[in-house]
Simulated assay, not measured.
Amino acid sequence: MTLLMPTCAEVVGLLTEYEEGALGPLGWLGLKLHLSLCPPCRAFLDSFERTPDLLRKLWPEPPAPAAERALGGALAALRQGRIPRGPVHHPEDEAWSALEPGGDPFKALLLRVHLGHCDSCRSQHPAGEAIPATGPSGGDALGLLRPHLPPEDHWRWTRRGLGGAHVAQLLRDPATGATLNLARMPGGMSMPLHGHGGSELSLVLSGTLQDGPAHLGPGDWLACGAGQQHGPTAGPGAECWALLRIEGGIRFAGWRRILGAVG
């Protein structure tokens, strides 16, 4: 940066303050001077100003309260120089009804594990329902969860077509056909592209998982709708363990479709 005029890199950092009218007189003058001499930065500012309108057209409905709370907390932490800790992907508002009497037992179990990781959700939902979070390794992640699962010798592991991942079916709900599953993925491994006959709920127990644009860590919740295809990848290094509620089994894309529905 010169005495008055910022560099291109510095302009990017000043645009939010500029749009909010928070720049001081020297900063405003320096930014205006730079923009008058720099066509690429003028083009960047134009796209920056058009982004909110484009987002409003894509999502005309207001965001859900849970999304607003999560975003507000993350922005506050960033402004204060803190890195947000704990889950950043939370259950949808309607999912919490599973904790009520007669609710879906598999979904309720995932919610209870999420509550064990998430301070903000415990402040809004029954903390007594939480299954406390444990250490970062897969074995530790299962420690306090085991009493809520059938004995390990009843788990039915599937490896067929999973490219190195293991999925154990733990329970099946005869009323809905949904299954409760435990997935174990080696670090850096990608699950083959697949979809489901119904919805899939994922709750990460340990390690990290990249599923499309979502980067998931312990306690994070992700819902995939029927027919939606994805191929999540475990983060490098440690194994990723996840608890899954699956409807309609796993249905592979490509040549693996000859295997039929798995689980």
Score class of each variant (00 low, 15 high):
residue 1 M to D: 12
residue 141 A to L: 09
residue 137 S to G: 08
residue 109 L to G: 01
residue 254 G to Q: 06
residue 70 A to L: 02
residue 107 K to D: 11
residue 179 T to L: 01
residue 87 P to M: 06
residue 37 L to I: 07
residue 132 P to R: 06
residue 189 M to P: 01
residue 224 C to V: 08
residue 54 L to W: 15
residue 207 G to R: 01
residue 60 P to C: 02
residue 98 A to E: 02
residue 86 G to W: 04
residue 254 G to V: 08
residue 246 I to Y: 13
residue 106 F to P: 01
residue 136 P to R: 13
residue 108 A to Y: 01
residue 22 A to N: 09
residue 100 E to N: 04
residue 202 S to T: 13
residue 255 W to G: 13
residue 60 P to D: 03
residue 1 M to H: 06
residue 94 E to T: 11
residue 167 V to T: 12
residue 181 N to D: 15
residue 65 P to E: 11
residue 57 K to T: 03
residue 33 L to K: 02
residue 16 T to V: 12
residue 141 A to V: 09
residue 228 Q to A: 03
residue 223 A to Q: 08
residue 155 W to H: 11
residue 138 G to D: 13
residue 24 G to H: 02
residue 221 W to Q: 07
residue 225 G to C: 05
residue 37 L to V: 10
residue 221 W to Y: 15
residue 235 G to I: 09
residue 60 P to G: 03
residue 179 T to K: 02
residue 202 S to D: 12
residue 69 R to S: 09
residue 67 A to R: 02
residue 199 S to H: 14
residue 52 P to Q: 03
residue 237 G to T: 06
residue 111 L to Y: 10
residue 66 A to C: 04
residue 187 G to W: 10
residue 15 L to G: 04
residue 20 E to H: 06
residue 167 V to L: 13
residue 234 A to P: 00
residue 36 S to L: 14
residue 211 D to Q: 04
residue 225 G to T: 04
residue 80 Q to E: 15
residue 210 Q to D: 12
residue 85 R to P: 00
residue 117 H to D: 11
residue 196 H to G: 06
residue 262 V to M: 12
residue 149 L to Q: 09
residue 77 A to P: 03
residue 121 C to P: 02
residue 132 P to A: 15
residue 93 D to G: 08
residue 151 P to G: 08
residue 174 P to T: 01
residue 202 S to L: 15
residue 134 T to E: 13
residue 63 P to C: 04
residue 238 A to Q: 10
residue 152 E to K: 07
residue 163 G to E: 15
residue 43 A to F: 00
residue 143 G to C: 12
residue 163 G to C: 08
residue 176 T to A: 10
residue 91 P to G: 11
residue 139 G to M: 07
residue 242 A to E: 04
residue 163 G to P: 05
residue 192 P to D: 13
residue 170 L to S: 12
residue 93 D to H: 06
residue 73 G to H: 09
residue 184 R to A: 14
residue 250 I to Y: 15
residue 12 V to N: 07
residue 248 G to S: 08
residue 76 A to R: 02
residue 208 T to G: 13
residue 68 E to L: 10
residue 246 I to K: 07
residue 169 Q to M: 09
residue 223 A to F: 11
residue 44 F to A: 15
residue 43 A to Y: 00
residue 62 P to V: 00
residue 147 P to I: 05
residue 28 W to I: 03
residue 99 L to R: 01
residue 10 E to V: 01
residue 228 Q to E: 14
residue 170 L to H: 07
residue 47 S to F: 08
residue 166 H to R: 05
residue 198 G to E: 06
residue 247 E to Y: 11
residue 68 E to C: 05
residue 160 R to N: 14
residue 129 E to Y: 04
residue 228 Q to W: 08
residue 241 W to Q: 13
residue 144 L to G: 03
residue 16 T to I: 11
residue 243 L to C: 06
residue 187 G to F: 10
residue 218 P to Y: 14
residue 202 S to E: 13
residue 223 A to W: 11
residue 82 R to V: 10
residue 65 P to H: 08
residue 6 P to N: 03
residue 43 A to V: 02
residue 63 P to Y: 05
residue 183 A to S: 13
residue 230 H to F: 12
residue 179 T to W: 02
residue 6 P to R: 00
residue 39 P to N: 08
residue 158 T to Y: 04
residue 205 L to D: 14
residue 221 W to D: 10
residue 193 L to I: 05
residue 152 E to V: 10
residue 65 P to M: 07
residue 181 N to V: 00
